[in-house]
């Protein structure tokens, strides 16, 4: 035990990375077949999902075991933290691509199209727009559900931090309550988002097909929603582990990683609220 602490933990050979790759492949192939409605697409897709889910439980299970078994010294912990930070940076760049598309189409392509009276007579630059040939739609008002969702996410950012304080001063109750609140807020955010999508499609004519506004709107909010979902699932795992009595005030990387991720999702939402809904 003590010996392990002054040596960097090197995991023994593991079957999970290979399983993960096979799962990814199955998932990808399944998607290709499905969207081109070929053969057993959906089933392949499902198989891929199952493999990934199974792999994750086992791989993370093993890591949790090692962590609780005190295999990781401070240096390993630092590796994990750095890794997570850089992973979040890569996520930021992923969203940057879609924000880039939003800015370009709003500030360049739409005005350029409007300025072209030969190919697109009678189209005037405006935002939101579905372009010269796009179907009419009503944009989302920022001051309805989106504003509420902003409050929800900001609050959830606070509750997760409060939970963290609980963990730091080893107050389990506060940790668990904080997590439960955060998870509930996360779920209500998703519920409202789902409702918003439903309204968009049924009442506002705002769909993926609604020109560049529809496209950027759904890609940005959609990928954000996906990240909230993932974040919520990770929070639930943290809750379970906290109830099981995992984590120590000086050793709880997983919890911090999840809260970083949650804050990141929070910040992305703020950008969304400002640039997609508001301005």
């Amino acid at each position: 035990m003590s010996a392990t602490h002054d040596h960097y933990y090197l995991p023994s050979p593991s079957p999970w990375p290979l399983t993960a790759s096979a799962g990814l492949f199955t998932l990808a192939l399944g998607t290709v077949l499905t969207i081109n409605d070929l053969g057993a697409g959906p089933w392949v897709l499902l198989a891929g999902g199952v493999i990934i889910a199974f792999m994750m439980t086992r791989w993370f299970g093993q890591v949790v075991g090692e962590s609780e078994g005190a295999a990781y010294n401070a240096q390993v912990d630092m590796s994990f933290r750095m890794g997570m930070a850089w992973f979040i940076f890569s996520e930021v760049m992923f969203f940057a691509a879609f924000f880039g598309a939003l800015f370009f189409e709003r500030h360049y392509s739409v005005p350029w199209i409007a300025a072209d009276h030969i190919l697109w007579p009678g189209f005037h630059a405006a935002w939101p727009t579905s372009g010269p040939k796009g179907a009419a739609f009503t944009p989302m008002s920022p001051w309805g559900i989106p504003a509420i969702n902003t409050l929800i996410l900001l609050t959830s950012g606070a509750t997760v931090t409060w939970a963290h304080w609980g963990l730091l001063k080893s107050n389990r109750a506060q940790l668990i309550v904080g997590l439960v609140l955060t998870i509930l807020l996360g779920c209500s955010f998703l519920a409202l988002q789902a409702h918003e999508y439903y309204m968009a499609y049924t009442h506002f004519g705002l769909t993926l097909k609604a020109g560049v506004y529809g496209a950027t709107f759904f890609m940005l909010t959609g990928f954000h929603g996906l990240h909230v979902t993932i974040g919520t699932i990770m929070l639930i795992v943290m809750l379970v582990r906290s109830i099981k009595g995992h984590f120590r005030p000086d050793h709880h990387f997983a919890f911090e990683a999840v809260s970083w991720y949650w804050h990141f999702v929070d910040v992305v939402w703020l950008a969304l609220f400002i640039f997609v809904y508001w301005l």
Partner: peptide, 14 residues
């Protein structure tokens, strides 16, 4: 596959 217009002028894309 999903009818977006990121790269199509008709929908305001480029």
């Amino acid at each position: 596959h999903f009818g977006t217009h990121f790269f199509e002028a008709a929908g305001g894309g480029d």
